[in-house]
Measured scan of single mutants.
Amino acid sequence: MDLSALRVEEVQNVINAMQKILECPICLELIKEPVSTKCDHIFCKFCMLKLLNQKKGPSQCPLCKNDITKRSLQESTRFSQLVEELLKIICAFQLDTGLEYANSYNFAKKENNSPEHLKDEVSIIQSMGYRNRAKRLLQSEPENPSLQETSLSVQLSNLGTVRTLRTKQRIQPQKTSVYIELGSDSSEDTVNKATYCSVGDQELLQITPQGTRDEISLDSAKKAACEFSETDVTNTEHHQPSNNDLNTTEKRAAERHPEKYQGSSVSNLHVEPCGTNTHASSLQHENSSLLLTKDRMNVEKAEFCNKSKQPGLARSQHNRWAGSKETCNDRRTPSTEKKVDLNADPLCERKEWNKQKLPCSENPRDTEDVPWITLNSSIQKVNEWFSRSDELLGSDDSHDGESESNAKVADVLDVLNEVDEYSGSSEKIDLLASDPHEALICKSERVHSKSVESNIEDKIFGKTYRKKASLPNLSHVTENLIIGAFVTEPQIIQERPLTNKLKRKRRPTSGL
């Protein structure tokens, strides 16, 4: 017993010596996670971090007073192994002897410093981030199933929210409404489509400006004509009531908005009720001829604005009016007729031209339509002016008669200019590109209106002035400009410049 007691005391002394060697000089306990400095002193990692955080910048070693920084600290694995072995020896000594260790306080702390507990403390002390800490805590505590279930439920809930957000973003663009038309193969669909197009076009005519009305009406008319041609002859009974509906809707729209509806009346003529396609083609032919005449008058307007600064050229074209007008009339009417003589009366030419125009518009179905009313009214106005011209010709002399006839021709041009508003800008460009020769010939008609105004002003003063002067240069210039014009009389060319000069002198006297 005595020997055993001596041996136990010796073992205890050895353990105490080893414990003092492996103590931390700051906390005076076994080193936890030993860290060595540049001066080869060993301290606990937790104690050194606490010391360095007390001051900004480098701190001093507690043993040798040298500078220490966080970067200079290094882990010493050898001392950590020695500490672990010492703890194992102490545990074995207690089991063999059955005696508690003399320094129970220190031993209890040593026992608490088992490797499992050290790992837990290291995970908390090290600044490795929240995710690494959570992982280490889960690994160190596998015995708690409640914690695992809560963490898994949190992760699953987070994943569910992310997935639901993604699915919502994908589903939202798919919620856009999609309209699908289910059509049938019955023959009544074509008639319904035609009526739908006509009503939609009328609404567009009321909303859209004048520049786009003609294009819309032309497209709708083409669509309706194609649909009529596709149907068989057996379905004509269905077409006639639908066309009557079209007429009623167009008349109502014309009564409500007459000014807006006139812009599309000329282009919509071939959508009118037709028994066969031949009647629609004839109407299209007549409309094309009318559009040609209207576009020519538009060309004359532009030329008149350009040549208004040259009064000499405008005056020299006075007698070329009849010849150029004959050529335009021959090209406007498709019928083959002989040219009228140069010395014939211009009023007779106008009456013949009106007689040619009237039969074209005397179809029984055309008179029933609303768009032809505008053309009939313009023709009636022309006839009224010609009836007035006959009365004026009986009273005035030959020279005054010529000037009045020219004035009436200008009035006719004004009437025809009203129809110019109905034609589109695209048709003007096509006419100029296809028929430049006709445009040059028809330019002379509009330029002549300037000389007509001068004659009217001469009649106000009650006299006409003449001068025997020749202007050969002007006649040559005008002959080169206009290709299809005829030779003019030299006496009238000489008379016109004198009248304008005298007018300039006598205007201030009349004002006084």
Rank of each mutant, 00 (worst) to 15 (best):
T77P: 12
I124H: 13
L147V: 11
N66G: 04
Y179P: 07
S114H: 02
T97A: 02
V191R: 09
F79K: 00
L6D: 05
L99C: 12
L182K: 02
Q148T: 11
M128V: 07
F43A: 11
Y130R: 04
L165G: 08
K175I: 01
V11T: 08
E75M: 12
Q81A: 14
V14M: 01
N144Y: 05
R170E: 09
F43P: 01
E121C: 14
Q155C: 09
L3G: 09
K168V: 09
L147D: 04
V35G: 01
L182D: 07
S146F: 15
L165S: 09
I42H: 02
I15E: 01
T97L: 05
T164D: 10
G129C: 10
A17Q: 01
L118F: 12
I42S: 02
E9V: 14
K168I: 10
E33T: 06
E29V: 13
M18V: 02
V8E: 12
M18C: 01
L138D: 06
L182H: 01
N144I: 09
S104H: 15
E188S: 09
Y101A: 06
S151N: 05
R166W: 13
V122T: 09
L51P: 01
K32R: 10
L95E: 10
D2P: 04
P25S: 05
M18R: 00
Q174P: 14
A92D: 03
L99N: 06
Q139M: 05
L30D: 10
I15T: 00
A102Y: 03
Q54G: 11
I125N: 08
A17E: 09
R131P: 12
Q126A: 09
E85M: 06
E188F: 07
D120V: 10
Y101W: 01
T150H: 06
T69W: 12
H117R: 13
G160V: 05
S4G: 10
I125M: 05
K168Q: 12
I42T: 06
V191D: 09
I171P: 09
R170C: 11
S151R: 10
T37V: 06
E111M: 09
I90S: 02
N158L: 02
V154W: 01
N103D: 15
S127M: 04
E33Q: 00
S177K: 03
E188V: 08
